[in-house]
Every structure is written in structure tokens, then in C-alpha cells.
Design a protein around this nucleic acid. Structure first.
Length: 360
DNA sequence: ACTGCCGGGAT
DNA sequence: ATCCCGGCAGT
């Protein structure tokens, strides 16, 4: 029974936090008057979404809290639980995270798996994600809590470990001022918020924590404007992800919120599945022209399935131990296309030279 | 017989 | 350089 009381207390605290956050947001939104109507509308809409989200998350939190943390059902649950909510509350950007979290799923252009992908399909990762959080509150309180500062500028969400660095960020990135410019009248503080970060959570769950935030993705934010630049983002994310030192509790949290964690996730899932990414075998990369006539086409398709070159595309050349195909196994242009389609042969084959299309 | 392709000739 | 083909070797 005391558990229920705890739950109630907890959710009350959380709601309070939300309200606090919301009021702060409204505060900075009042400074949006100078924006284009469209921008403003976007902001208003996103705020409404955030509001909805806040409430629905709070509801979710309550729902999940109503399960006993020690019950096996709870452990096995792959749905949102309070820890996730906590992550969202603490670390995810406000407007940016909200837009992708609930309502923008249909707009996602990113082919990466949805938020639940990793946790739903990979039990081990689920354990890793939720493991530290499903414990009792006492345990949670034993953990190290670090105050950090998160930029609340639209689609930014940068997190810095120190007050001065977040202010510098807001000043330089969003207010367009110089690093040590004092003409901002402390305006920066409207554009960041103080958050408490559970160090363990940061160390273990950073990738997952960023999923919803990213879903407002495909944009990087510079001075409040959005620029769709996937390639840049990829480069950026590669660079930043690789530079995040692992296992250092606070990982110098100066990363950019646009770090595209799902990129990382995608590569992880590729590794896990041991599958060849479809883009590695795009039609343009195949050296074979598609024949117009059906008969060679069939042979061609059959060949493509067994062609050694297809494997060469995705795997490095193997060393000496490779089984050399006997002559009866090899398939060259003549065999694949037949004499009747000699015009489809590679030049070398036409000239009775060593085939260049189907290398052994 | 069929196939892959070397070697070499023609242009 | 490009194109073609006689002829050899492996199957």
C-alpha cells in the first residue's frame, strides 16, 4: 500500500516538473512575436503537442507505475515505463523531441526502425535500458545526480554540463552574439533549462534516450532556422558519435543534440542481423544490364543469386583458402546470356578474352 | 562437344 | 586501341 502512496507522490512531483517546464517554455515563446506567422504557428503547434505529450506521458507514467516494479510482468514489459519517461523529462529536447515522439511518426522519412525497435526486438538491450531503472526509489536516489543545462531553443536541445557553457551556446548559436558579448541582458537563461541527469542513465542509455528527440530529425538547427541536410547530419553524427568517450559517466556532454543516434542504432541492428544493407546492392551497382528478352533474364536472375561478384560487393576479398570453382561451375557471359544474346556479353567475352564481368 | 581465354592478326 | 578469331586446354 505504501507503494501506491509513493506512486502518487512521485507522479505529483513529475506533474509539477512538467508545469514548471511548460511555464518556462511559454515564457520564451512570448519572445517569438517577431517570427514569421508560419514559424510561430509551428511553435504553437509543437507546444500544443508537447502539452498533450506531457499529459499522455504522465498518464503513461501513472499506468506503468501501477504495475509493481517487482512483478515479472513489469520486468517483461516493453512498453514505456517510468524510467523512459524520466529520460524524456530529463534529457530530451522539448519541442524537438515532442514533434517526433507521438504525432509525427507518419512524417518520418528516416527508414530506421521506430523508437521501440531496439527494445522490442532485442531483449538484452531491453534489460540494459530498463535494468537500472526498475529498482525502487531508494536505489534510484543512491545514484549520482548531476545538474546539467539543456538548450530549449526550437529543435536544438543541446546539453551542456555547465551554466556558462550553455549560455555561451545560446549566445553564439541562437542569439547570434559573440562568445563574451554581454549585450544579451541575461536573455540566454530563457533558452535553456536546468535538468537533473542521472549519471548512470547517461552512461547506459544515451542512445535510446535520444530516439524521440531525433524523430524531429532531418533538420539541423542553426540560429533557429532549419536546414534539411542529411549528409551533413550523417557526417556530423559520425564524427560526434565516434568522439563520445564511452564509460565516462558524463561523457563531456557538449555533444550536439542533433547527433543522430538512430544512425548508430541502425548500424547496430545491421550488425545484429548480419544482413547486407539493401543500399549496398542497389541496381546501379550491379554491372549487369537487364536484358529485354525473358529467357536470358531468367538466367540472369538466377545467376545474380549465385554470382560470386555479388558477394564481393559486400565482403572483403577472401584470402587463399577460397574454393576455386571448377570449370563446370563457372558462369561467364556466354553461359549466362547464351550465344543468341552475344551482344549482351562483356567486351572481353565477345573478343574471346578473359571475362571481366563475372570474375572468379 | 562445349567452354574459357591466350596469342596473335587486322584495322 | 579496338576488334576479331584460330586454336589450345579443361571439363
Amino acid at each position: 500500500m505504501s507503494l501506491i502512496t509513493q506512486i502518487r507522490n512521485r507522479s505529483a512531483t513529475l506533474m509539477k516538473k512538467f508545469k514548471n517546464r511548460r511555464s518556462k517554455r511559454q515564457h520564451w515563446q512570448s519572445g517569438l512575436d517577431g517570427l514569421e506567422p508560419e514559424d510561430k504557428e509551428n511553435n504553437v503547434r509543437s507546444n500544443m503537442e508537447v502539452e498533450l505529450e506531457d499529459e499522455s506521458i504522465a498518464a503513461l507514467a501513472l499506468t506503468s507505475l501501477s504495475c509493481s516494479p517487482v512483478s515479472p510482468q513489469f520486468q517483461g514489459s516493453k512498453e514505456l515505463s517510468i524510467p523512459v519517461f524520466y529520460q524524456d523529462n530529463l534529457l530530451l529536447s522539448t519541442s524537438a523531441s515532442s514533434s517526433g515522439f507521438s504525432s509525427n511518426h507518419s512524417e518520418r522519412s528516416d527508414p530506421s526502425p521506430p523508437f521501440t525497435h531496439l527494445s522490442a526486438s532485442d531483449p538484452s538491450s531491453t534489460g540494459m535500458m530498463f535494468g537500472p531503472f526498475v529498482k525502487d526509489e531508494e536505489i534510484e536516489e543512491e545514484k549520482q545526480i548531476k545538474t546539467m543545462y539543456k538548450c530549449t531553443w526550437k529543435k536544438c536541445g543541446k546539453i551542456c554540463s555547465t551554466n556558462s557553457s550553455i549560455e555561451a551556446h545560446v549566445r553564439t548559436q541562437h542569439l547570434g552574439l559573440k562568445e563574451n558579448d554581454s549585450g544579451s541582458d541575461g536573455e540566454e537563461e530563457f533558452y535553456y533549462t536546468e535538468i537533473e541527469v542521472n549519471v548512470d542513465a547517461v552512461a547506459q542509455g544515451i542512445s535510446d534516450m535520444y530516439i524521440p528527440s531525433h524523430q524531429a530529425d532531418s533538420y539541423m538547427s542553426i540560429n533557429g532556422s532549419t536546414i534539411p541536410d542529411h549528409d551533413y547530419q550523417k557526417k556530423e553524427s559520425k564524427l560526434l558519435v565516434s568522439s563520445v568517450p564511452s564509460g565516462t559517466g558524463l561523457f563531456h556532454i557538449q555533444y550536439d543534440s542533433q547527433v543522430n543516434i538512430p544512425q548508430m542504432k541502425r548500424s547496430i541492428s545491421l550488425q545484429n542481423n548480419n544482413t547486407i544493407p539493401t543500399f549496398s546492392s542497389s541496381p546501379t551497382s550491379t554491372p549487369i544490364r537487364m536484358p529485354a528478352r525473358p529467357s536470358p533474364q531468367e538466367r540472369l536472375q538466377q545467376h545474380q543469386a549465385q554470382s560470386p561478384k555479388n558477394h564481393m560487393l559486400s565482403s572483403p576479398p577472401k584470402s587463399s583458402g577460397v574454393h576455386k570453382k571448377s570449370r563446370s561451375e563457372v558462369r561467364k557471359c556466354r553461359k549466362v546470356y547464351g550465344m543468341e544474346n552475344r551482344d549482351m556479353w562483356c567486351t572481353q567475352c565477345k573478343w574471346k578474352k578473359a571475362c571481366t564481368r563475372f570474375l572468379d
